[in-house]
Structure formats: structure tokens, C-alpha cells
Amino acid sequence: MNEIAVQTQNLTRRFGKFTAVDRLTITVSRGEIFGFLGANGAGKTTAIRMLCGLLLPSEGEATVAGFDVYKSSEAIKKNIGYMSQRFSLYDDLTISENIDFFGGVYGLSPALIEERKEALIEQVGLGDFRKRLTRDLPLGFKQRLALGSAMLHDPPIIFLDEPTSGVDPRARREFWSIINELAAAGKTVFVTTHFMDEAEYCHRVSIMRAGKLIALDSPGKLKESYGRNNMQDVFVALVNDEDPRPEEQL
């Protein structure tokens, strides 16, 4: 594994006349928590879907874990974990059945599935609930479980698309401590969010507007260069002051 986890060069995606992602160029290194910020509809989800091999780009280059998104999307899928903004476990399966299923689908051996299942249930603290249907869990637990399920195959890169929307603040904090642990263990975490306080936890953040990248730096440097105290204000400044055509924001 080289030190560059994700790299894109002028990555573009159009839907008809509408350009969802416009010439995106970024480089994310191994072990980095890379935040992807922007208003709803700014193109975050489209970008992440292209990187996961769910959507073909219209133009530009991109590699994930050293694999090309055009040619090797199946190889990429073995090296990434993905959690979409919509909850992605099966509601009508028990926790244990869900983990068995995703482990099996990623091709893990039954013994390995069992081992990781125990670890995950332990970590999330769901020991007594393993036979419960997933739909009966509180959302915070569900999200942590979904994250664990998306990582059963121990991928080096993890994509999280608005993982914490709808979750209460305490659960969000816990979620982010897991993300920090992952990064400390050398995993690359690519996360989109519209919570600006969460942006503070990222090593670097990129801000998108109307498909274009308008800022990319560490939170500290961004606050410094815009002369603001928090990311919330940086974001508002960026979106308001530097937008020549605000009506195109959507």
C-alpha cells in the first residue's frame, strides 16, 4: 500500500446538462481523516459514489488504493468500506444475522466472521441484543453497527457519507472517537458531513459548492486565513463572500 490513498485529477460528473462534480482534484494520504464539506446538493455524495465505483465519472482521473475507478472498480470494492447516508443494514434481520451476512458477502471465513462479530458486538456494547431485530435498535447503535459491518473485511480506506445525520450529539461524539481510533490505526477515512463542528475533527477538509472545490486545507489553517474562530463561520464566509452567483448554489 502506497502512501497515497485517494487521488483525483479533474474528476467530473454530469447528469444531462447539470454538472454535479466539476473538475475535482484532491489527494488524500494514508491515515488521514479527510472531511468533505458542503451544502446539500453540493456534489459530495456524487463524488463519493464515483470513488466507490458506484458511478462512472464523465471525465477526469481517479485512483483509490492505487486502482483506477474506470478499469478496476471491482478491485477497489475489496479495499474500501462504505456507509451511505441512508441506513444500510437489513431491518428485518437480527444484529448477528446482519454481521454474518456482510461478512459472508465479503468472502470472510466463518471462523473469521465469528471472531470479528464478537469483537464488533463487544465494541458497540450490544452483547445482550445480538438476537434482536435491527429495526428495534436506537439509531446511534445502528450507525455504529453499520460502520462495523462495512469494515468487517478490514479495508484500508473507509468512505462515510453523512454517517451521523439524525444521531444525537452524544452518539456523534462516540462515533467520532471510533473514527479517530481507525485513523490512528493507519486507516484512511473519507467522510462527508454538513455538521461544521465535526469538521474540526478532520485532519484536512475540503469545501464544495455547486460541484466545485472552493477550499482545501486543515481546519486550523482555514480558520486562520479567513480570520474566524470556528469552521461554521469559515463556511458561511466562503459560501457568502466568494460566491459570485449564489443562485447557482443548488
Binding site: G53, L54, I80, R86, V105, Y106
Partner: peptide, 14 residues
């Protein structure tokens, strides 16, 4: 509709 298909699509399942 539920979104689980998307999750399946990013797995290495052919």
C-alpha cells in the same frame, strides 16, 4: 428503495 442495494453494490460481490 431502502438503500441496502447500494451497500451491496460496494461489496466485492460480482
Amino acid at each position: 428503495e431502502v438503500g441496502t442495494l447500494e451497500q451491496l453494490m460496494v461489496t466485492p460481490l460480482s
